[in-house]
Design a binder for these strands. Structure first.
Lengths: 199, 199
DNA sequence: GTCTATAAATTGATAGAC
DNA sequence: GTCTATCAATTTATAGAC
């Protein structure tokens, strides 16, 4: 949800929409967006379908609101980084760690964002914003190479895709509060990517 | 398709099933499995729905055949590795490179496999086989650590997930014959994972 | 092995009462 | 803001002719 959208709704609706979205995101995750029917959502939220349609225009808006939440959180990481001083390689490490934190904190929403393929208008919008995100990341990697802190024998665009492919792959198995901790994942990922696995 | 399944069908059916599967996999990829209707598949293959039902029991079997193809190719990489001599770290590098090659060669099938979430019986079977694949990879990484060739300050299970998360993320953007070449992707991935990005 | 025709169930969405 | 009832379209799948 963007600031603009949040502003137009009174407080009570905000909360109920928030709760609705929380359950909906989990259902979309469990069964996939397409495989989840409005009937499924009705059951999961304990409301009737009609009641859901009172809050949103349809299934697609539910997806749009969910992925918008993830995009807002991810772009906030980049915006924060833009305001920072210091070598690009340090800012890159900060973005890496912050991305893992966002991913952990907004796991259902980020997972949905990463699984969106561009079938509907809302999905194509999300894909476009992801591309913009990727371009800004690539620029950061390129700067770090130019500053001499990252090896210059690898293509920056390719490196960016690999690095953030690694980050994104976390959504396929990372579950907060079970298995590996967020801090350990963050440290191991940064260690592997920057220093490599070789002893 | 496993050897067992291949054996029961006469040659002509094998070919038409192969062609059918090729088109079906592309459709599943483009719209997602759930969003693709039998009507869509009918149009894409130039056959009627009834004709498709003559070859397979239903939509789910089409998915099962497709992901089985990917699993066969991936397990072949591991089986080949098991027969090799030499340090585990070298066998790991070989598995990494071979996985990228399999992914490039069987891109639609591997992509489908990686997007399967366990909604149906066929999907749960695929998820289980992926877990087995992951266990065998972890054992290889662990051996490489024990042999002193990989750093021992990182958890092998976590490292395995990160490394093959990176490999798997290729399906989200890698397209053979456009953009980065397969060899460059392979080399860059191995370089990043083993030696790290730091200059 | 492909077709036409159709069954039976489910889909996203709306009307209108309370 | 939630409900019951319902719609039109689409879904997976089958029957049976050629």
């Amino acid at each position: 949800m963007t600031e603009a959208e949040r502003r137009v709704r009174p407080r009570e609706q905000r909360y109920s929409l928030e709760e609705l979205l929380h359950v909906v995101a989990q259902e979309f995750l469990r069964r996939g967006y397409d495989a989840t029917s409005m009937e499924d959502l009705s059951r999961a939220t304990g409301r009737t379908k009609s009641s859901i349609y009172h809050h949103v225009s349809g299934k697609e808006e539910l997806l749009r609101l969910a992925v918008a939440r993830a995009l807002d959180a991810l772009f906030a990481v980049l915006d924060e980084q833009d305001a920072q001083e210091g070598p690009a390689v340090e800012r890159l490490e900060h973005v890496l760690r912050a991305s893992v934190r966002v991913l952990a904190a907004e796991l259902p929403y980020v997972t949905l964002l990463l699984r969106v393929r561009g079938n509907t208008e809302a999905e194509r919008w999300a894909v476009q914003r992801r591309r913009e995100f990727d371009r800004r990341l690539t620029a950061l990697v390129r700067t770090a190479v130019d500053e001499g802190d990252l090896r210059d024998d690898l293509d920056p665009a390719l490196v960016t895709r690999l690095v953030f492919g690694t980050v994104n792959s976390l959504v396929d198995w990372f579950r907060p509060g079970s298995g590996h901790g967020r801090q350990q994942v963050e440290d191991t990922l940064v260690a592997m990517v920057l220093e490599g696995l070789r002893a």
